[in-house]
C-alpha cells in the first residue's frame, strides 16, 4: 500500500537540511509505520535528491516519525537552482512510498 493511504506529512527547510514529519491517521497503524518506514527506505526513495545522511526520530507521543535529510536541498533554499528550493513537495514524495502494510 502507498504510505499516503495510512499517513500524512509536512516537510520544512533549514539551510540545506529538509525535515519531513509523518503521522498515521489511525494509531493502530503506528507499529507498522515504525517497522516499515525506516530511514533506509526513505533514503532509497529519495535517491540522488539527498546527498547526506537520513536520520529518523520516533514521536510515539503523537504516533509520528520525523526524518531529517542532510544535504537535501541542493545547497539550501537560497543557493540551489532547483524548481522547489524549499523541498515543499518532499511531503508528497514521501507519501508515494510503497509499504508492505499490516502483515499480521
Amino acid at each position: 500500500m502507498k504510505l499516503r493511504e495510512m499517513a500524512y506529512s509536512r516537510s520544512g527547510d533549514k539551510g540545506d537540511v529538509s525535515n519531513i514529519c509523518v503521522f498515521v491517521y489511525d494509531q493502530a497503524d503506528y507499529p507498522t509505520l515504525v517497522e516499515q518506514l525506516t530511514a533506509d527506505v526513505v533514503r532509497e526513495h529519495f535517491g540522488a535528491l539527498v546527498q547526506g545522511n537520513v536520520v529518523r526520530y520516533e514521536l510515539p507521543n503523537v504516533h509520528g516519525l520525523n526524518f531529517v535529510l542532510d544535504k537535501a536541498l541542493g545547497g539550501g533554499v537560497s543557493m540551489t537552482l532547483r524548481v522547489d528550493p524549499h523541498g515543499k513537495a518532499f511531503q508528497s514524495l514521501i507519501l508515494d512510498i510503497d509499504l508492505p502494510g499490516d502483515q499480521r
Partner: peptide, 15 residues
Amino acid sequence: ELTMKTQLYYEIHDP
C-alpha cells in the same frame, strides 16, 4: 489534532 501535529514538528530536527 492533525493540523497541530504537522505544525508542532514542522522545521524541527531532534524533537
